[in-house]
Simulated scan of single mutants.
Amino acid sequence: MNNASSVKICKASVITADVSVESIAFHRGCYAVDVTFYFDISLEAYTCGSTIPSRVNGLAIYGKRSVLYGSESNSKSFSSDSCIVCSQPVTSCGCTEFLPNATVQISEPMALSARLIKGSVPQLPCAPIPECVITYFGDDFAVTGDASVSATIGIFTITQLERNVQIMIPSYDFCIPRKECKPESDDPCEVFSRVDFPNESFFPPNARPEEREKCNFECGCNG
């Protein structure tokens, strides 16, 4: 990288992310979600005397803070399929914090651009790099040299705060019929005897139904 005259970004991928949640003072129910993303940046480094670029991979770190409303809860939840996790200690106000869970989703990064910065010594972040990130690259990071790369990538993220809630769903017992239904008769004559005589078929009305309801024969209404 020290002999490179220019660089070109090829690809960016997400390695992992570190997510933490903490409450915000004087804002009850609001929490700050701090996310640190670790990216694998693939570059092509060009030297002055060579037209064939060299492929170089490096680490890019980006941090983001989001403030979300996560409500409050005074109950604790434990599960048999999770590890033992101790609750937060009692704060100075005498109450115990029940923090919600934070979930962060990130899209595939878009590699936009990269530029070589001469005279800039790369520096490792103040926070320790996760062990899985070091294992991903397979070796310790080289921090010697007089050049660094500034990469620009585009990402889309969704940050959520989650809590376990109870949902009341009404349930009903299985209903057993208590009254025995009598079977209908199979005699066609008996079935026909229960049919009302169709008077309207033989005596059509002289007026429309709405007019017939208003008709009063005692007042001289001619049908």
Rank of each mutant, 00 (worst) to 15 (best):
C175P: 02
A207D: 10
S50K: 11
F26S: 13
P125Y: 06
C48T: 13
V195T: 10
C95Y: 05
P177R: 04
P109S: 03
C86A: 14
F141C: 02
C126W: 07
K64H: 12
G63I: 00
T36W: 00
R212P: 00
S50G: 04
S148G: 06
I106F: 00
E72K: 10
N2D: 09
S77M: 12
D34F: 07
V191Q: 14
S107V: 14
K214F: 05
Q123G: 10
Q166K: 14
I158E: 10
P205D: 08
K76E: 15
F141G: 03
T144F: 11
Y136Q: 06
E213T: 09
Y62S: 01
V191S: 15
S75V: 03
S54Y: 05
R65D: 04
V149E: 01
N57M: 08
I158R: 09
P204K: 07
D187P: 02
C10F: 02
I129M: 09
I24M: 13
N74K: 11
I117A: 11
Y46M: 07
S79C: 06
S42W: 02
E211Q: 13
V14C: 02
I41F: 01
S148P: 02
D146S: 10
A127Q: 15
G58C: 06
S113A: 10
S13T: 12
I134L: 07
S73H: 11
I153S: 02
A12S: 15
N2M: 00
L68N: 03
N206H: 15
Y46P: 00
C126P: 02
D18T: 01
I52K: 15
R194P: 01
E162V: 07
P204F: 11
L161E: 02
E44Y: 12
G63K: 08
F192D: 13
V191H: 13
F197Q: 09
S79G: 09
C30K: 07
P89T: 11
D173I: 03
V104A: 05
E97W: 01
C189N: 15
F202T: 07
G223Y: 02
I169P: 05
E131K: 08
C132E: 15
F192R: 12
P177A: 08
E22D: 13
N216Y: 06
D186I: 04
I61Q: 04
I9D: 02
P128V: 06
T159F: 00
R28I: 14
P204H: 07
R65H: 08
N3P: 05
E200D: 15
A151V: 06
I176K: 10
A4W: 00
H27P: 01
S120I: 11
D146K: 04
P89E: 05
S5T: 15
I134K: 09
G220F: 00
C126M: 11
S42E: 04
T96D: 03
G94K: 06
L43K: 03
T47I: 07
I9Y: 04
I176Y: 14
V90E: 11
L43V: 04
V104E: 00
L99G: 02
C126S: 14
A114R: 03
K64T: 06
S66N: 07
R194T: 14
G223S: 11
